[in-house]
Structure formats: C-alpha cells, structure tokens
C-alpha cells in the first residue's frame, strides 16, 4: 500500500479509467480519508461535466452551408466524352502523322548525325524530368494543404 497521498495524476486515473486496477492505489484510497474525499470530488466533477448541456446554434447550419455549395462541376456525360475523346484524338493524330510522314521518320536516324540525335534525346529527357518534378511538387503541396486543413 502507498504510504504517501496519491498524486493528482493517480487520483484522476483512478476516477476516470473504468479498467483501472492498481491494488496499492485502491488500498490506499480505501484507508486514506484525504485521498478518498479527493477522489470523490473528482468523481462529482467528472459526472457534472458529462451532464453539461451541449451547445447549439440558433440557426440551421445545414441550410446555410448547402446554400453556399457550388453545384457539382462535372456532369457525367461531359466527363465521359472528354475522357475518351481527347486520348482518341491524340492517338489518331499520331497514327495519321506516322502514315503520312513515314518516309521522313525512317530517315531520321540515318541522315542526321549522332550529335543531333543525342541533343534531341537529352532535351527530351530534361524536359520530361522537369515535368515529373513539377507534378510531384504540386502533389506534395496539395497533400500538405489537405493535411493542414
């Protein structure tokens, strides 16, 4: 059994934790008038806080918020059209260009010097890398905003 009076922490734990089981503390409270009374005061206080009435607004928050919400931006059919039309147009454009200019493409790697080819390749890689970094940066920023809000 504890000889000294219980600390505030022990008293609060004893009162608020329904699964609290520390024999030395329980025995102490049973035999110590001061700690018993202290625990009882906490008990009364906790019960009192629990019974406090819940605050409420004197207006209908739901109505106010819903009135301010934007109408859903996307309509299903428009989205579907955009989702399929854009990539298909792109693919079609590439295929048509390949068909029309296939003679020039075949000569691309033969006629021009290696230097020009590597220059073209390195520019493409650098631009692609910058794009990736930018996308990642934007993604991190948006996630950051969400975490804060």
């Amino acid at each position: 059994m504890k000889a000294k009076h219980l600390s505030e922490n022990e008293l609060q734990q004893y009162v608020s934790d329904p699964f609290f089981f520390d024999e030395s503390i329980i025995h102490h409270i049973e035999s110590c008038e001061t700690c018993k009374v202290n625990a009882k005061v906490y008990q009364i206080m906790f019960a009192g806080i629990q019974k406090q009435s819940k605050p409420a607004f004197d207006f209908d928050l739901t109505d106010l918020v819903i009135a301010q919400l934007e109408q859903p931006k996307r309509s299903f059919s428009t989205n579907i059209v955009v989702a399929y039309l854009l990539p298909s147009t792109g693919i079609m454009a590439i295929l048509i260009s390949c068909f029309l200019f296939h003679e020039y493409f075949s000569g691309l790697f033969i006629r021009y010097s290696n230097l020009l080819f590597y220059l073209f390749l390195s520019i493409t890689v650098v631009v692609f890398l910058f794009q990736c970094i930018e996308i990642y940066r934007k993604y991190k920023k948006q996630i950051g905003v969400l975490n804060i809000s």
Binding site: F57, F59, L61, L64, V65, Q68, L69, V145, L146, S149
Partner: peptide, 15 residues
Amino acid sequence: RKDIAQDIYLKAFKS
C-alpha cells in the same frame, strides 16, 4: 461563430 461554422463545412466540402 456563425461564419466559422460555415467556413469549416465549406473547407471540408472542398477538401
């Protein structure tokens, strides 16, 4: 309080 309450739900909706 009124403005804040609305602001909270508008933020929640957007996020």
